[in-house]
Design a protein around this nucleic acid. Structure first.
Ligand SMILES: [Mn+2]
Ligand SMILES: [Mn+2]
Ligand SMILES: [Mn+2]
Ligand SMILES: [Mn+2]
Lengths: 219, 219
DNA sequence: AAATAAATTTAGGCAAACCTAAACTTTTAT
DNA sequence: ATAAAAGTTTAGGTTTGCCTAAATTTATTT
């Protein structure tokens, strides 16, 4: 298998290239990985020998198909662990990254299959980023702002655009988190607020301010 | 912090020394760690320099107090992850070890605290081995065979002495697993079988054969 | 008490993943 | 079109953790 260092490089290349589209420069990598450019050159030669990247000296790297496959696997693991940490262990969004950065390197197919099952096959991580499928497909699902839903329409919370503690505490209080199943119960035209049911349990009225900060995908 | 290699050595020394009691030989370590004796000598010099072990050339190693503390922390993490894998992800006893061997090296105090909480502060791992407390204390609790309990007495399943699939499947069927809360409801003197309630839910009658294979600790 | 056997350490190397300093390419500015 | 600046690679080191082969120490025989 691949070393932790190799995996971190692959993932960084994937992200900096925008999913494998563009070539990535040595300095860009050295910055995100917090190493020196010389070390990056070193590693790129190795990754190239393993056919994980196309590397043209002085002009940058790109992932090969195999490289992309590896990248998506690591990203899948990273994001599943993030979901676990937030939903099961009650980590906050800003606490998860460092830990997930380590857990993503644990090697076991069974583990990640079972974890996915245990979490109910989540489609987005706590930051609203999509989780690649077991087959390695990453479909960026259409995200709509909650304020745009019509009465009766449903959505699953995938992203919140405000990380101030006060706002997050408010969401916590009303019971909204990433993954919550929402449905618009009623629309109050006076101030554009909506009555929203949460996980088929309670229901609350959310102001248009709040509605603008919550994003959902189709259920 | 300590590297994965160092942590594995510390843990191996702890286990081979029987909790820090006896000195451990280079060859013993090389066997359990699947490295050559020369590599062990190398590492022992390093661990000694870090004051994690007392090392007397040609005569073996022992953990220092600090070394013992480190060992118990790793063992705590290993066993908590084993509980997670079995209870939450439905791994079997024999599937957990390799994965826990990796997860035990993830660094995060918060993670392990929250995991412990999430699992309900378990006291034994799926093999019946005790889980060191957060303070680093390992109390081997008195294990009694289920057949020895009197009517009304309670116990928590901590170990099962038969790993044949047929037996494990039987336990699975009646709903007994490590951590199950049992209470003796009635005693049938005719064949020494017992009626046992499981997790305050259902109750079953277990034959004396089965009772001899299940061990419990005090609730 | 030697001699032999077994266990252990030391010496010298290697690969991974990093580093600094120097050399080389490519880009930008004059 | 050259020169300077910026980016990148190469050369030569370091540390970690492993290896083999040789030397050394301890244990066991005779
Ligand atoms: Mn990582
Ligand atoms: Mn994320
Ligand atoms: Mn381990
Ligand atoms: Mn165990």
């Amino acid at each position: 298998m691949h070393s932790t260092a190799e995996e971190n490089y692959i993932k960084a290349i994937y992200k900096l290239s925008g999913g494998g589209a563009n070539a990535v420069s040595t300095t860009a990598l050295s910055e995100t990985l917090e190493t020196k450019p010389a070390s990056v050159s070193d590693m790129l030669r190795k990754l190239s020998a393993k056919d994980l990247v196309h590397y043209v000296k002085y002009y940058g790297v790109q992932l090969t198909e195999e490289g992309k496959r590896v990248a998506l696997k690591i990203i899948r693991k990273h994001r599943l662990w993030e979901v676990f940490l937030v939903q099961k262990l009650h980590f906050t969004w800003d606490e998860v990254h460092e830990v997930a950065e380590q857990m993503e390197h644990v090697k076991s197919e069974l583990l990640i299959q079972r974890l996915d099952e245990f979490l109910g096959h989540p489609r987005v991580d706590p930051h609203g980023d999509p989780i690649p499928s077991e087959a390695g497909e990453l479909r960026q699902e259409e995200q709509r702002v909650l304020s745009s839903l019509a009465v009766e329409q449903k959505g699953v919370v995938c992203r919140v655009k405000d990380s101030q503690p006060a706002f997050l505490q408010y969401l916590n209080k009303v019971g909204i988190q990433i993954g919550s199943q929402l449905q618009v119960v009623d629309k109050i035209p006076y101030d554009n607020s909506l009555e929203i049911s949460i996980d088929k349990n309670r229901s609350v009225i959310l102001s248009s301010d709040v509605l603008e900060k919550i994003f959902v995908i189709n259920p």
